[in-house]
Write a protein that binds this DNA or RNA. Structure first.
Length: 693
DNA sequence: CTTAGGG
DNA sequence: CCCTAAG
């Protein structure tokens, strides 16, 4: 019936001429303008009406009658106002929260020669996850990387404790969690016991001989100053040669908990900006630019120390490898990539091991450092990135020649977890699990340190090494190191590519030092992102979809595992100081979830397009999907595109929820009609312009 | 911000 | 769906 009716009208019914584009303000009142859309002259209106009656749907085409039309308009107009207001508030809120959630992560990577890229996807254990993560984790072999963990100081009380992470840094709750130093502890305190015969060989990788010193640090500290708010970022960096994989999980520390009373971070809703009102999104670009300027300048001039004059200071984790003394100049090879997730630093020189990792457990370690908290230890030990064993203990078994080791726990490499704020706890767990699994699965190998020295010779027996049943208990240690990349490493360089759970390599616009790259990442809620881009994403994120207690998640985890240390969030100002990063879709920017159009939606879309044409998606959106926040006009446009395509292909080739042929026919019909209209318009336009000229 | 298209 | 060039 319907079809028949339509045929009756043919295309002659398409009388609705495209409405000339109006200015935005006018457009806002689009509904009014729509009045001009032929009073029911549109064949589709009639069709709809007829169809509606036939189907008993009542009024399926409000536009068919003036009265109904009027109602609709009024309603829409009103709704729009409300909506706009709501949107505004929503956006603002989002923005605020976004700033809050944002983490700040800067890493610099300098690489050299052979580049070995390794993407997570290559790792069997790592699968696409719900968390947004960098496209691919890539690492350069033989590279050194700098990583800057920025911590934000809220009240200018930052202390220049370069070596102390646990300084009273003000943190903000951020979506990013830096797991610094989380001991992988076997559940229930089970311990790993390894029993080896004295003849067993110590297996270590010899190749790892490149010294980190090869990549002198170019700048240890830098200060970032955000232009408008005088926020300063004191950044410290440490070289992180790939060869060493930092295995560190600091105790989880919830962003604001201990030292953040002032930051008010715990309350997401409280903007942490000193300036007060959150900057408008539009200001971003400018701010970013300005900030970048400062940034660069500061990088150059602030090598020696942070100019800590700003009221607010971004503190950065400072990781310095011990014995790292080379000149920066040596480090000017082109960098290849940077990633959000930094490959931890690890002292390369043999002796350094001993000073590095410290077990988070109070237990006396081999090093006897017994540094109280892991956190402190990680902070204290310059090579924070270091991974080290802890609790290595030997059991002596008088009778035999076997040596028993009790490895209480291994530290895990730094992990950068970026997860939408509304992700579930479960997904967070999975995310962390995957990251850990990825690392443990293939990216690690064991290093052996004996009496403060790294035992490189895999062929030596324990006995030869001195690890006998009567060796000093505290002399042996193990470390987790990045696994060398099997495939590439022709030169035998020992810079193992790090397995990066999350990556964020990106061409930097430019860096102060030729070889240095500062990579920053800012986390974004739900829509993640480490960049400004994310902000917009964040704002646009669909709050309806899956809101989840982000903080709660962090809290919970931290409480349970004490492994979460949210990356210091950066406030708006701080964010603005993160310019070096090309807004290229940040890691965090996760793709919106796919939401197949339902038949009813298609119906609505078709109907709207029949009436409005194919060039007014915004109006289509307003008309038919005004309350479907997740459907943007671009989405509608895309859907129409696919619909047209679908209608043209054979039913067998179609996938997904089948769309009624009837609708597809209408699609083709309407598409053909409007295409023709468009063509006509184009024909006319030129001539008119021509005439005018 | 919207459109229009390519990816 | 995303990304972007254009307008």
């Amino acid at each position: 019936m319907v079809l028949q009716k339509r045929l009756d009208y043919g295309f002659n019914g398409y009388q609705v001429p495209p409405i000339p584009r109006a200015t935005r303000s006018v457009r806002r009142r689009g509904i009014i303008r729509r009045k001009a859309d032929g009073n029911g002259t549109c064949p589709f209106d009639l069709l709809a009406t007829v169809a509606g009656k036939l189907l008993g749907e009542g009024e399926s085409s409000p536009d068919s009658t003036g009265s109904v039309r009027g109602k609709e308009q009024g309603a829409i107009v009103k709704d729009e106002k409300v909506k706009e207001a709501e949107d505004r508030s929503l956006k603002e809120k989002s923005y605020t929260e976004g700033c809050y959630e944002r983490g700040f992560f800067i890493s610099e990577l300098v690489s050299q020669a052979p580049v070995v890229n390794r993407s997570l996807s290559e790792l069997p254990h790592v699968q696409n996850d719900t968390i947004s993560r960098p496209a691919s984790a890539s690492m350069t072999s033989d590279c050194s990387e700098k990583l800057l963990f920025a911590k934000q100081f809220v009240n200018g009380e930052s202390r220049e404790e370069h070596e102390n992470f646990s300084s009273k840094t003000k943190q903000e709750a951020s979506g990013c969690g830096v797991f610094s130093s989380c001991t992988l502890d076997t559940e229930n305190d089970k311990q790993m016991k390894i029993e080896l015969s004295n003849k067993a060989k110590v297996s270590t990788d010899k190749g790892a001989a490149i010294s980190s010193s090869k990549f002198p640090d170019i700048w240890d500290k830098t200060t970032l100053v955000s232009s408008d708010e005088s926020v300063k970022l004191s950044l410290s960096t440490y070289p992180a040669p790939c060869r060493s994989f930092p295995v560190i999980w600091n105790d989880v520390k919830l962003a604001n908990k201990d030292d953040d009373e002032n930051s008010g971070c715990t309350q997401p809703s409280t903007p942490n900006k000193a300036s007060g009102a959150a900057p408008r999104v539009r200001d971003w670009p400018i701010k970013k630019l300005l900030a970048s300027k400062y940034w660069e300048e500061n990088l150059k001039s602030d090598d020696e120390g942070h100019a800590n004059s700003g009221a607010k200071t971004m503190h950065v984790y400072y990781n310095r490898n011990i014995g790292y003394k080379h000149q920066r100049s040596q480090r000017d090879f082109p960098f290849k990539k940077r990633k959000l997730f930094k490959c931890g630093s690890f002292s390369n020189s043999d002796g350094e091991m001993s000073t590095d990792g410290i077990s988070s457990s109070p237990t006396n370690d081999l090093h006897g450092n017994a540094s109280g908290s892991s956190k402190a230890s990680s902070g204290d030990s310059a090579a924070a990135g270091t991974s080290v064993f802890n609790g290595g203990r030997a059991f002596l078994r008088p009778g035999d020649s076997h040596v028993k080791f009790r490895i209480k726990s291994f530290k895990v490499p730094d992990l950068f977890v970026d997860i939408p704020e509304n992700a579930t706890i479960g997904s967070l767990k999975r995310t962390v699990m995957k990251a850990v699994t990825a690392i443990l699965g293939g990216g690690l190998r064991i290093g052996v340190v004996f009496q403060g020295k790294k035992v490189r010779d895999d062929n030596k027996t324990l006995l030869q090494t001195g690890i006998s049943h009567d060796y000093k208990l505290d002399a042996l240690g193990f470390s987790l190191e990045p696994n060398p990349v099997q495939t590439s490493q022709p030169l035998g360089q020992d810079c193992r590519s790090c397995v990066l759970p999350y990556e964020t390599p990106q061409p930097l616009t430019r860096c102060p030092s030729p070889s240095t790259v500062v990579h920053t990442g800012i986390q974004q809620g739900r829509s993640d992102d480490h960049t400004g881009t994310s902000l917009s994403n964040f704002l646009e994120s669909d709050h309806e979809s899956a809101p989840s207690p982000h903080y709660a998640a962090l809290e919970k985890i931290s409480t349970n595992s004490r492994a979460l240390v949210p990356l210091t969030a950066v406030n708006a100002e701080a964010l603005s100081a993160v310019p070096l990063r090309k807004p290229k879709r940040s890691e965090a920017t996760q793709r919106r979830i796919r939401r197949p159009f339902s038949v009813s939606e298609v119906e609505a879309l078709v109907q709207a397009v029949e009436k409005l044409g194919t060039g007014r998606w915004r109006d289509v959106k307003l008309r038919a999907f005004d309350n479907a926040k997740h459907r943007t006009y671009v989405d509608l446009k895309d859907k129409w595109k696919t619909l047209v395509h679908t209608a043209r292909i054979s039913p067998q080739q179609r996938r997904g929820e089948p769309v009624p042929q009837e609708l597809l026919d209408r699609v083709l019909t309407a598409h053909a009609y409007w295409s023709q209209q468009q063509a006509k318009q184009q024909m006319k336009q030129p001539s008119e312009t021509y005439l005018l000229l």
